[in-house]
């Protein structure tokens, strides 16, 4: 029995140490409840684990709140520079302008319309199906992903999903806990120099690694889809745009692909979640002819 308790505690501590996020808090609580039910640990022990888990998560969340919009912006700029180093830009001014108009209109109806510099969108000249967003409001979308969009409403859905990641501060949550502690110390003591640069360097590394290699957790992806649905509805786009683009991606994505296929849950899972959440049946996007003409003019031949 003691051995089991030891391993359980070890697992829980490891999970908290490496992830330190809301998802871990939920998982830890669930595992503890199950262990308590099966008699692996006593109710007192379970209560104590849950209490310390909640305490760690609270402190962690407070540390993440230390990031002001200005600091998120500076993290975002460097993450953007790393992304632009990996992918070439698609330089067409009118097409990028078209996407920025959609993005900035969506941001206006969001719960966080004002961020330090505002939201900016740039197309990446890559056939890979992917999109990225930095905490500073830089949104990147590949040509490959734009080719999965059949309407402006679908493009808006992709951008609204990325705005969702920014507003829910998913990127900041990718920064490792020990770095947040270090950051907190520099804020209090105003120590700058090498230590702060080291923390910044580490934070950029955590962020880009998560975006390019591992991806956000599934709950974060589903949460960003929820925001996307809300923004589409608020602005007046057809919310079916999200399901539409996910359906095309489901057909196009190869599970062994790098990029989006590797870092996102399967599109069908997301479609199921969206439809279940909204309680509606998918129907093809209704987009006025004038909107479709400008979509085709800008994205049709990309």
């Amino acid at each position: 029995m003691k051995r089991k308790t030891f391993f359980l505690c070890l697992f829980l501590s490891a999970a908290l140490l490496f992830c330190g996020c809301q998802a871990t808090l939920t998982t830890t609580t669930k595992v503890t409840t199950q262990a308590e039910k099966k008699g692996v640990i006593s109710p007192e022990k379970a209560k104590s684990i849950k209490k310390s888990t909640a305490k760690i998560a609270k402190a962690d969340s407070k540390r993440r709140e230390e990031f002001t919009p200005e600091q998120e912006y500076y993290i975002g700029r460097s993450v953007a520079a790393v992304i632009m180093n990996k992918y070439p830009s698609y330089t067409s001014q009118p097409v990028n302008e078209y996407l920025n108009l959609i993005g900035q209109a969506l941001a206006q109806v969001s719960d966080m319309p004002e961020i330090f510099l505002g939201y900016r969108v740039l197309i990446l000249n890559s056939d890979e199906i992917n999109a990225f967003a930095t905490p500073g409001g830089h949104i990147f979308i590949t040509k490959g992903l734009l080719r999965c969009c059949r309407t402006e409403d679908a493009v808006a859905a992709v951008l609204a999903h990325e705005i969702g990641h920014i507003q829910l501060k998913h990127g900041i949550r990718a920064i490792k806990q020990e770095r947040l502690i270090e950051f907190g110390k520099t804020i209090v003591t105003e120590i700058g120099g090498d230590k702060l640069l080291e923390t910044f360097d580490g934070a950029i590394g955590d962020f880009t690694n998560m975006m390019i290699n591992t991806g956000y957790s599934r709950p974060f992806e589903y949460a960003a889809d929820d925001v996307a649905q809300t923004l589409l509805r608020r602005l007046g786009y057809d919310p079916n745009g999200l399901v539409e683009v996910l359906m095309v991606m489901e057909k196009k994505l190869n599970p062994e692909d790098t990029g989006f296929g590797k870092t996102h849950p399967p599109p069908q899972d997301r479609i199921d979640k969206v439809l279940k959440k909204t309680g509606i049946k998918y129907s093809p996007v209704l987009t006025p002819q004038v909107r479709q003409i400008r979509f085709m003019k800008n994205i049709g031949n990309i």
């Binding site: 230390e66 500076y74 460097s78 520099t186 702060l196 640069l197 910044f200």
Partner: peptide
């Protein structure tokens, strides 16, 4: 002057 700012970015 606190936290991540233009100066830290310049060093990075």
């Amino acid at each position: 002057g606190k936290g991540f700012n233009a100066k830290v970015e310049a060093e990075f």
